[in-house]
């Protein structure tokens, strides 16, 4: 059994005094990638933002452990420094801050990273000297987030619908880069140290990497978990209704 990297225990989270997550239990072992499914408004983004430590997501009960350390009340930058990285779904524009500087900042001391090379692969060379996210298209934002994450090189990669807004031309590129981020291109399974938690509606990511486990979040609770491909197929056939009753898949 691999050692757990992320452990979430009985997590209750409120946003503006309304409870969104009603007791989540989730373990992601080192080297494993988990997929989070669920209808709109089920609390998927809330879960990721809470793990990142963003304000406005109040943990009222339970705790989050990362690599054995309780991080429930740490500020986001300390979580990031421990190795948690998130691609934002709708990041703000940073006026007067160039993407190049942001990538360098994300890399920490970062004198060893090849910014130009990474940007070229992500078709973002021209964007390096533009303000972060200023006038970026949906797809450009996704690629810019991945560029920053590559520089940051986190141990836990969290992605919120990495496919949304990406044109067909770039979807394959995004899939490949995510696979690399998660060390899925490493042949030796035992060498894999990076874990992932990915929200997806379409399941596109499963075409590019083998995910270890899938979970369905409905109404603020993890309803079921199991083989991500089976879950996806089930959702496609029966919708999320079926998942709530969870007759097909094994209950946690």
């Amino acid at each position: 059994m691999k050692k757990p990297l992320l452990e979430i225990q009985d997590l209750h989270v409120s946003v503006e005094d309304k409870e969104i997550l009603h007791g989540i239990d989730l373990v992601i072992p080192e080297g494993e990638t988990h997929i989070l499914f669920g209808p709109n408004g089920s609390g998927k983004t809330t879960l990721l933002n809470t793990i990142m430590g963003l304000s406005g997501y109040r943990v009222t009960q339970g705790r989050i452990l990362f690599d054995g350390q309780d991080i429930t009340h740490l500020p986001p930058y300390e979580r990031a420094r421990l190795g948690i990285g998130m691609a934002f779904q709708r990041p703000p524009t940073l006026h007067g801050v160039r993407l190049r500087d942001m990538v360098r900042l994300a890399a920490g001391n970062g004198d060893t990273i090849d910014i130009e090379g990474m940007a070229r692969r992500l078709n973002l060379t021209e964007h390096l000297d533009r303000d972060v996210n200023a006038g970026f298209s949906g797809g450009e934002i996704k690629r810019s987030e991945l560029l920053q994450l590559r520089a940051q090189s986190p141990r836990l990669v969290m992605l919120d619908e990495p496919e949304s807004g990406v044109d067909l031309e770039n979807i394959q590129l995004i899939g490949q880069i995510i696979a690399e981020l998660l060390q899925k291109t490493t042949h030796h399974h035992y060498e894999r140290r990076v874990s992932g938690l990915i929200i997806t509606h379409t399941g596109f990511i499963l075409d590019y990497l083998e995910a270890d486990r899938g979970h369905v979040l409905c109404n603020g609770l993890l309803q079921c978990s199991g083989n991500p491909r089976e879950i996806l197929q089930n959702i496609r056939q029966h919708g999320y209704e079926e998942c709530v009753t969870c007759r097909v898949l094994q209950r946690i």
Partner: peptide
């Protein structure tokens, strides 16, 4: 939001 975006990158 802008502050936290940077904080999420370790700043």
């Amino acid at each position: 939001e802008e502050i936290e975006y940077l904080m999420a990158r370790g700043i």
